[in-house]
Each structure stands twice: as C-alpha cells, then as structure tokens.
Amino acid sequence: MRENYLAKWLNNELTEEELEAFKATAEYAQYQKIKETTDKLSPPEFNMEQAWLQLNGQRMQEQAPKVITLSPFKKFLRVAAVAAVLIVGSYFYLGTLNTKVTTQLAERTELTLPDNSEIILNADSKITYNKKNWDNERNVELEGEAFFKVAKGKKFTVATDLGDVAVLGTQFNVQQRDDYFKVTCFEGLVQVSYKDQILKLPAGHSFAVVNGTITKQSSTATQPSWMQNESTFNSVPLKYVLAEFERQYDFKVETKNVDTEQLFTGTFSNSDFNVALESISTPLQLKYTIGTLNVVFYAEDTP
C-alpha cells in the first residue's frame, strides 16, 4: 500500500481500489473505530470572551512589566490588573523624584546606594540623589556631614553649597556646616573644588575651609571620629564645636563671656553627655551650668 496510506485514508484521499484493499485488511475495523471515537473527543472549553477581556487588560498596559496570568483566579486577575496599573504608574511617577534621606538632631543613619556605595549620615544632615538615573550620574547633594564609601565605577560627585567633591572609588568624609567645609580622604584620591580652586586630596589628608580660610591637615585615622561616637576638632573655632555638640545631643548651648572664635583642638564623646561637657570645658578653662534643655558655658572668672 501507499506510503502514509493511513493519513490519506483519514483525509479521504484513497482511490476506490485502495479503499477496497484497505477495508479488506484485518486492522480496518480497529482503525475505523479509533477514527470514530477520536472524532467524538473534544478539548476543554476555551472561554474566548474571558480571554479577550484579559487580553485587553494586558494590551492597555502593554509597555509595563508583564503581569503573570493565573487563569483560574479570574477575580484575582482583575484586581491584580488594577493593582498593577497603579503600582506601575506610581513606580514611574516616583522614579522621577529624587530620593531624600534626612537625619534629625542626635540621629544617625546609614544608606546604601544603587551601586552598593555606602553613606553614613551624621546628625542633622540631608542627602539627596536620583535613584533612577544613578547608573548614568552618581551625583549626591549633601547638607551637613556624611562619610562615603564609594564603590569603584564612574565619577561620583558630592555637591554641597560650599564646594564639590568628585571621586572614582574611595572612602571620604564631607562636612559642610554653615560656612564650615571640611573634606577628609581615608582611601584613594578625591578631588575637591572650592570656589575656583580644584585640589586633589590623597588618603590621610583633609581640606578645611573655616571662615573663608583654607587649611590642609593630615591624619592617620581610617574613619571619621564621629563613626566611633566621637567628634574631633583640629584648630576649629569654638562656635563650630558647640554647634556640633548641639547636633549630637539635641541640646541648646549658650555662652556667656566666652570667645567663640577661639580655636579648639580636641575630641568629645557623642555618647556620654557629661564627659563631653568636660572635654570641651576643661581645656578652655570654662565652667558650665546645665538647665533642663540647655547648657550655659561661661568663663571661670565670670561673677
């Protein structure tokens, strides 16, 4: 018999002679029965209307991430479709906004950027950056003080009101308080631009601007002291020291007959209030009184 004659038979393509010959075979009855029984079979119902509705839901948010369809949960799907539209919408909307992280007085926080760079934010500081555009532009705006551990990659810029710091991959601290601006590099190399000056700062060095005067210092520290719960100052006017004290303890500081422009070199604890007061007052030969929400420093010879 012809090649694929069963296929020809199913398709009614056999000639009369061929058909006769086939019918004469012993298998014919079985084949006939299989054919008849198969023709009575039918696949599960396909709900075209439902599929069309579901499809239109998907086409409406065609650009959005795919919704995984779980056909048995028809109600769930409708809810999910609405939820997906809302989530996707808000995702795109929020994506265009900048991310802001703020610390209150006496608070500190850590954050990880999209490229795994880390920022530790000291008290009363604010960081702003754009998560969405992060891969193209590693740009952070800083008000206050923060320590940066930058993952290797494209240029990373920290912009402050007083100056910008640009780096490739390193660890450094940026402090900008009122008109006090200090950058300390702990690893690698950072580039500081202040007004029209551009300066490269290698590890172990810091750059400070106090009252418009630039000073450069070197240190052997591997981390900013505030990360060990201390605030360290190297020839810094007392007013900045007291301002930092206020930030760390959320406690108002006042002075009486004290020259707040005098320079202070030393460290105070950020965790022990009384020790911190001693650390500031003793070297400067000051006395202090503690009120309910404030502390007053005064010269020893003040009546």
Binding site: N4, L6, A7, L10, N11, Q30, Y31, I34, K35
Partner: peptide
Amino acid sequence: EKRMHLALKSLR
C-alpha cells in the same frame, strides 16, 4: 502526513 500515519498506527 507521516505524523498522521504514525499516530494512527501507534494508537492501534
């Protein structure tokens, strides 16, 4: 056609 033929044959 080959598939049809083989399918019917194996069914039987």
